[in-house]
Design a protein around this nucleic acid. Structure first.
Lengths: 142, 142
DNA sequence: GTTGACCTTAGAGTTGTCTCTAAGCTTATA
DNA sequence: TATAAGCTTAGAGACAACTCTAAGGTCAAC
C-alpha cells in the first residue's frame, strides 16, 4: 500500500494533482490509514497509471472519466465506444492542427517579407499588413 | 463617430468584447458623448481593426499590446522588435504543432489497431494500450 | 520530545479570452 | 408618451487543468 507521495513519485504526478484527480473521480484510494492517510493498492496504482498514460496521450479529464467507466466494466460496453472517444479526440487534434498550420503560414510569410533590421519601424512590413487587414488576397498562401 | 455596437458590427466583435479589450488597453474610444457613450473616430476604428487582424492571425492580447505600442510610435522602435514578437509566436505555434502531431500519431495508431466493433470491450486493444503504459517501444512511431 | 517531512481538508488563485448579469440611464421609433 | 433597443458600470461566471494556501494532525528519526 502506497501513500500519496509514493504514488505521486511512481507515476510522475504531484500529490496535489492526485487529490485533484480524485476530486474529479479519476483516481481513488481504496483504503485509508487509521489517521486518514490515503492508501493505494495495486489496482489503484494501475488505475492511476491508466489515467497518466491517457493524459500523456492528450485525452481530457472528461474523456478519461469515460474511458475509466468502460474499463471498470468492459463487458457491458462496446469496443466502439472506445474508438468513438478516440476518434473524436483525433478530430479535435486535426482541427487544432489545421488552425495552427494556418497561423504558421501567415507568420512565416510575415517574417519572409520583413528583414527585421535594427532600423526603426516606420516602414515595417508586418505592421503594414496588420494595418491593412491581413495578407493581401493576391498571392495569398492557401 | 461610431457607437460601440456600430464599431462591433464593423469589425466583427461583440460590444462586450470591445469593452473587454478596452479594459486591457487594446482599443480605445477617443471621445464620449454627453451621456457617456463611447464614440470611435477613424483612427480608433483603424486601431480596432489592427487588433482584430492581429487576433485573427493568432497573436495573444499581450502580443497585440506590444505591437500596438510599437505602432503608436514607430520611429522609436526597431523593425526587429516586431519580428521578434512574430518569431516568438511562430516558435510557439511550432511547439504546439509538434505536440499535436505526436498526439495525432498515437491516436491514429490506436485506431488502426482496433476495429471498433459493437462487440464488448473485454479485449479492446485501446484499453490494453492504456493499461500497459502506452504504445510498445517496438514498432513505435517516432 | 523536538524537529521536519508528510499527511489532511476546504477553498482560493492562476491563465487567457471572453461572456454575461444586474441595475439603471439614453435614444430612437410609433 | 410609451416602448424597445442600446448604452453605462462593476463585477461575477465559464472553461481546463492545475497549483497553492491555511491551519492543523501524524510519523519517523535523532
Amino acid at each position: 500500500m502506497l501513500k500519496i507521495s509514493e504514488l505521486a513519485g511512481r507515476i510522475g504526478l504531484s500529490a496535489h494533482t492526485i487529490r485533484f484527480y480524485e476530486k474529479h473521480g479519476l483516481i481513488e484510494a481504496s483504503e485509508r490509514s487509521e489517521s486518514g492517510y490515503r492508501l493505494y493498492n495495486a489496482a489503484d496504482v494501475n488505475r492511476a497509471e491508466f489515467v497518466k498514460t491517457a493524459r500523456n496521450i492528450g485525452f481530457s479529464l472528461e474523456d478519461i472519466a469515460q474511458l475509466l467507466s468502460i474499463r471498470l466494466d468492459r463487458s457491458s460496453h462496446s469496443c466502439q465506444e472506445v474508438t468513438d472517444i478516440t476518434r473524436n479526440k483525433l478530430h479535435e487534434v486535426n482541427r487544432k492542427m489545421a488552425e495552427l498550420e494556418a497561423m504558421q503560414k501567415v507568420l512565416s510569410r510575415l517574417l519572409d517579407n520583413c528583414d527585421g533590421g535594427l532600423e526603426n519601424a516606420t516602414h515595417c512590413s508586418i505592421l503594414e499588413v496588420l494595418d491593412n487587414g491581413g495578407l493581401a488576397t493576391t498571392g495569398r498562401v492557401n
